[in-house]
């Protein structure tokens, strides 16, 4: 019962923070330098690992489906299958999970420690709005980083899939026929669907991790608790949102 109440309160607090953040977008000009700093920081934290993850999911996906397909002599369809799964589902979800784990957790840790050590209160006494000063640049940087990360992971995922397909003896689909099939199956709206998903994931991750960080109170132990809470909450919201958004995108005909 208490847990349910805590979850509902948490969602309420996040929505409230989202609203305050959207209202503060008009002050974007004054937080430009903080936004750029966050952008680089988020890129540094995610880009190398994202390449590794994308390459391996593309490769494994090609290996598993490719061998199945070749049993029926349909291995020439592999480009489309790998291409589609990567850009509509795997890249956005894995990018979001990576973002929550590497960026969301560090946002929460930073903001929670600022709350616990009264830095946030100090900002308030100087009439500096924590939403404008801390949340807005992180929110916007996340909103840019995640979709870019998805496009980047799409490309690397496809590369991984095509390399395995061409090099594996039992699949042996050449690079050109892989990309030929991919370009026939994957449409612009499939790629757009993944990017649309990632925009919502970015909102969920940045707001959840900021909200939990800002609300931390108590001693230093609370910082660790907040980070765990924020990562779990982000993961759950990514998975729930993924289902809802997939349904929605099918409904409106994008998928």
């Amino acid at each position: 019962m208490n847990t349910i109440l805590a979850i509902i309160t948490g969602i309420g607090e996040s929505l409230n923070l989202l609203w305050l953040t959207i209202k503060s977008i008009k002050y974007f000009g004054s937080s430009m330098d903080k936004f750029i700093f966050q952008l680089f920081d988020m890129g540094n934290r995610t880009v190398p690992v994202a390449a590794l993850i994308a390459l391996s999911i593309g490769a494994v996906l090609a290996l598993q489906t490719g061998i199945q397909l070749s049993n029926y002599g349909m291995q020439d369809k592999i480009g489309g299958i790998v291409g589609l799964s990567v850009c509509t589902e795997l890249a956005p979800v894995m990018a979001a999970i990576l973002m929550a784990g590497r960026v969301g957790s560090s946002i929460t840790a930073e903001l929670a420690s600022m709350s616990v050590y009264e830095e946030i209160a100090a900002l308030k006494t100087m009439n500096i709005d924590p939403v404008r000063f801390l949340v807005l640049p992180r929110f916007l940087a996340c909103l840019i980083t995640l979709p870019v990360l998805v496009i980047y992971m799409d490309l690397i995922g496809w590369l991984g899939g095509s390399l395995v397909s061409s090099m594996n003896q039992s699949i042996s689909v050449s690079l050109s026929s892989f990309y030929n099939d991919l370009s026939q199956v994957v449409t612009f709206s499939d790629i757009a669907a993944g990017i649309i998903k990632s925009v919502f994931f970015a909102i969920a991750i940045s707001i959840t991790s900021c909200s939990i960080g800002l609300l931390a109170q108590g001693g230093p132990r609370e910082i660790g608790h907040s980070v765990t809470k924020s990562v779990v909450a982000s993961f759950i919201s990514i998975l729930l949102l993924d289902y809802v958004l997939t349904r929605f995108l099918i409904l409106v005909g994008i998928l």
Binding site: E119, A122, T125, M126, F133
Partner: peptide, 25 residues
């Protein structure tokens, strides 16, 4: 203005940036 028991300096900023933050923001 309020001087906190814990000083509550912003740990990610230099001393100078801590002092100018009000004017900057």
């Amino acid at each position: 203005s309020y001087i906190f028991q814990s000083s509550a300096l912003l740990n990610s900023l230099t001393v100078l940036d801590n002092v100018t933050i009000f004017l900057d923001e």
